[in-house]
Design a protein around this nucleic acid. Structure first.
Length: 278
DNA sequence: CACGAGACCTGTTCGC
DNA sequence: TGCGAACAGGTCTCGT
């Protein structure tokens, strides 16, 4: 499921606790339960052994990656990278719970467990070597769209080629963390048709797109509880999204029926009136 | 080189 | 109600 706002919210939830969960920071991993060794990149035995006795120091996000800093039982700083891909989730559960689709879990010193669940098994986890440079893993990623340094000018500089603008938004080297949902949300806010050639955007359109990306992501993080509840628990609740999953319904701005098309192989929803073809 | 299609997996939803 | 087909938020790899 997760794009930048959902991954950000999961990191926040793990860091701060809440919703019945205790904060993960400071917990010691007493054991590792590996229900599906296939989710571990690299040596799965080293993953289990390297984390046993480790203490969690921090949980961070870069693009759609979750980075967990731990100090292993020898006191060395190690990093765990988790990518949730389409259907992964990471959450703290009571010690006696065994969630459906659990792939691995860390048994914690307070009796709880950090569970990684993923029905589709696209997600992966990796324990980096002690001397591995985390940042080096992410050099191909574009800027964080919510950073102060991500300006309209910075966006413009990366918008090259004549592929559809939606394909560019899905490219993690252009903007890190945007996926199919927030690409559609951003383009609707910017009133841009998803197939507009990237290099045909005017300066004004780039400014609108820059604004749309940041607004869509910021507002989703702010409403993250709703978004998560909608995603995971209650599809009957009102959709927190402006166009995603609303095909066939009315545009929230002009009432025109929202259309779908396929761009870059992905289902794409847009308003044919607010977002006229290029 | 740039771009799109296919592959990776499996659960859920849709249509007959 | 049952069953197969279509579809799903991401990212790599490969072929054109």
């Amino acid at each position: 499921m997760p794009e930048l706002p959902e991954v950000e919210t999961i990191c926040w939830r793990l860091r701060e606790g809440g919703q019945g969960e205790a904060p993960l920071r400071g917990r010691v991993i007493t054991d590792v339960a590996l229900a599906d060794p296939g989710v571990v990149d690299g040596d799965s035995a080293a993953f289990v052994d390297g984390l046993r006795g480790a203490r969690v120091q921090d949980i961070r996000r870069r693009a759609k990656w979750i980075i967990i800093d731990v100090d292993d039982r020898g006191g060395r700083r190690r990093r765990v990278l988790v990518h949730l891909k389409m259907t992964g989730d990471l959450h703290v559960r009571a010690g006696d719970e065994r969630p459906r689709f659990e792939r691995f879990a860390w048994e914690l010193d307070d009796g709880a467990r950090l569970c990684f669940t993923d029905p589709r098994r696209f997600g992966h986890v990796e324990l980096l070597a002690a001397d591995d440079d985390v940042e080096a893993r992410f050099t191909a990623l574009g800027p964080e769209p919510l950073d102060e340094t991500f300006t309209a000018r910075a966006l413009r500089a990366r918008l090259t080629g004549r592929r559809p603008i939606k394909a560019s938004l899905l490219d993690q080297a252009v903007v890190a963390g945007v996926g199919n949902i927030y690409a559609d949300e951003s383009l609707w806010l910017a009133r841009l048709h998803p197939t507009t050639p990237t290099n045909a955007l005017s300066d004004d359109e780039v400014v609108r797109l820059h604004h749309g990306i940041r607004r869509a992501l910021r507002e989703s993080i702010a409403q993250s509880r709703e978004a998560l509840a909608w995603r995971y628990e209650n599809r009957a609740a009102p959709s927190p999204f402006r166009v995603y999953d609303r095909a066939g319904g009315p545009c929230l701005r002009c009432g025109t029926t929202l259309s779908t098309t396929t761009v870059a192989g992905r289902t794409t929803v847009f308003c044919p009136r607010c977002q006229p073809p290029p």
